[in-house]
Every structure is written in structure tokens, then in C-alpha cells.
Amino acid sequence: RLIESLSQMLSMGFSDEGGWLTRLLQTKNYDIGAALDTIQ
């Protein structure tokens, strides 16, 4: 599930440099909407 969510976020133009996006998705239970809300 992480790989699916991460690949979708990467395709939106986000980077996972340093693993920050992986950690964010894990804390949000791989919910892309919740991750995007946090980023904004």
C-alpha cells in the first residue's frame, strides 16, 4: 500500500528526498488526501 500511495504522490510531482514523504504517508495510514492536507 505504501508503494502505491508513494508512486501516486511522486507522479503528482512530489519528491521523497530524505524519505520525508514516506514517513508522512505512514503517519497518515497511506491516505493521500490526508497527506496533501498536511502539506498545505
Rank of each mutant, 00 (worst) to 15 (best):
K28E: 09
L2K: 06
I3Q: 11
L2E: 10
T27A: 13
Q8V: 15
G18L: 13
S15V: 12
A34C: 09
S7V: 07
A34R: 09
L21E: 02
D37T: 12
K28N: 13
A34D: 09
K28M: 13
Q40R: 11
I32E: 02
W20V: 06
D16E: 05
Q8R: 10
M12R: 05
D16P: 01
I3N: 12
G13R: 00
S15A: 09
G18Y: 09
Q40H: 13
G33R: 08
Q40I: 14
M12W: 09
S5N: 06
I32A: 06
R1E: 07
Q8I: 15
M9W: 05
A34L: 14
I39M: 06
R1I: 13
R23A: 12
A34E: 10
T27N: 15
D31M: 07
L36R: 03
L25S: 02
L21S: 00
I39E: 03
F14P: 02
E17N: 12
Q26E: 15
Q8A: 12
D16I: 06
D37Q: 15
D16L: 03
A34N: 07
R1D: 13
S5G: 10
L36F: 09
G33Q: 15
E17P: 08
K28I: 12
S5R: 08
D37R: 12
G13P: 01
I32L: 07
I3M: 14
G18S: 08
S11K: 14
G33S: 13
L25K: 02
R23W: 06
M12S: 05
I32M: 06
L21F: 09
Y30W: 07
S11Y: 08
M9N: 00
S7P: 02
S7N: 15
N29K: 10
S7M: 13
Q8L: 15
S5P: 04
G33L: 10
L6R: 03
E17H: 09
M12P: 00
F14Y: 14
G13M: 02
W20H: 04
L6M: 09
D31K: 00
I3V: 14
L6A: 01
I3A: 12
Q26M: 14
N29F: 08
L21T: 01
L25A: 01
L6S: 00
S15P: 08
A34Q: 12
M12L: 10
I32G: 00
S11R: 11
G13H: 06
R23C: 14
S11E: 12
K28Q: 12
L6Y: 03
S15M: 10
A35K: 03
G13A: 04
S11M: 14
I32V: 14
N29S: 10
A35V: 15
L24G: 00
M9I: 07
T38Q: 14
D31Q: 06
S15K: 11
Q8E: 13
F14A: 01
Q40L: 15
K28T: 12
L25D: 04
T38K: 08
T27W: 11
M12F: 09
K28V: 15
S11G: 05
G18C: 14
I3W: 14
Q40D: 10
T38F: 15
G13N: 05
L21I: 05
R23P: 04
T27Y: 14
Q26H: 01
M9T: 01
S7D: 11
R23Y: 04
A34Y: 05
G18N: 12
S11T: 10
Q8N: 08
T38Y: 15
L10K: 11
Q26N: 09
D16A: 08
Q8G: 06
D16M: 03
G18Q: 07
G33W: 13
Q26V: 14
L2T: 04
L6H: 00
I39D: 01
M9R: 00
F14H: 05
S11I: 13
D16G: 01
S11L: 07
W20S: 03
L24N: 00
D37F: 13
Y30K: 04
S5W: 10
N29M: 10
L36E: 01
M9V: 02
N29D: 11
G18F: 11
F14R: 00
A34I: 09
L24M: 06
Q40S: 13
L36G: 04
I32S: 01
R1G: 11
T27F: 11
Q26L: 13
F14S: 02
Q40G: 13
Q40F: 15
I39R: 00
N29Y: 10
L24P: 01
R23F: 13
E17W: 10
S7W: 10
L6E: 00
S15Y: 10
L10A: 08
L36Q: 01
L21R: 00
L10H: 06
L25M: 01
G33K: 14
N29I: 08
Q40W: 12
I3R: 15
T27M: 15
L24I: 07
F14Q: 02
D31V: 05
S11W: 10
L36W: 08
A35M: 05
Y30E: 02
G33D: 13
E17Q: 11
M12K: 01
D16K: 04
R23Q: 15
Q8W: 11
S15F: 08
D31L: 08
E17D: 12
E4T: 08
D37L: 13
L6T: 02
S7H: 15
S15L: 06
F14I: 05
G19D: 07
S5L: 13
E4F: 10
L25H: 00
G33A: 11
D31Y: 06
T27L: 14
G19R: 04
K28W: 11
I3F: 13
S11H: 09
L36P: 03
T22M: 05
L21K: 00
L10P: 00
I39A: 04
G13C: 08
E17Y: 12
Q40V: 09
A34V: 08
L25P: 01
T27R: 09
E4K: 11
D37H: 09
R1K: 13
A35F: 08
G19W: 01
W20D: 04
E17V: 12
Q40A: 13
G18W: 07
T38P: 00
R1Q: 12
N29E: 10
S5Y: 03
L10Q: 09
G19Y: 08
L2Q: 08
T22Q: 08
G33E: 14
L24K: 00
L24D: 02
G13S: 05
S15H: 12
K28D: 03
S15C: 10
T38A: 14
L6K: 00
L25W: 04
N29G: 10
N29Q: 09
G19H: 04
G13W: 09
D31I: 09
T38V: 10
F14G: 02
D37M: 11
G33T: 13
N29L: 11
L21V: 04
G18P: 03
T22K: 05
L36V: 05
Q26P: 00
S11F: 08
L24R: 00
S5E: 05
L36T: 03
S7Y: 13
I39V: 07
D16F: 06
I39T: 04
Q8D: 03
K28F: 13
S7Q: 13
A35T: 14
L24Y: 02
Q8P: 01
T22L: 05
A34T: 06
Q26K: 14
L25E: 02
E4M: 12
S15N: 13
W20M: 01
G19N: 06
I32Q: 04
A34P: 05
S5I: 09
A35G: 02
D37V: 12
Q26G: 08
L21Q: 00
S7I: 13
M9E: 01
G18A: 07
L21A: 01
G19M: 07
A34W: 09
I39Q: 01
F14W: 08
M12D: 02
G19Q: 06
G33V: 15
I39Y: 06
L21G: 01
Q26F: 12
T38D: 11
M9C: 12
A34M: 09
L10I: 09
T38G: 08
Y30I: 02
Q26W: 03
I3G: 08
Y30D: 02
K28S: 11
I39L: 09
E4W: 03
D31A: 07
K28A: 15
T38L: 10
D16Q: 05
T27K: 14
S11A: 13
L2H: 10
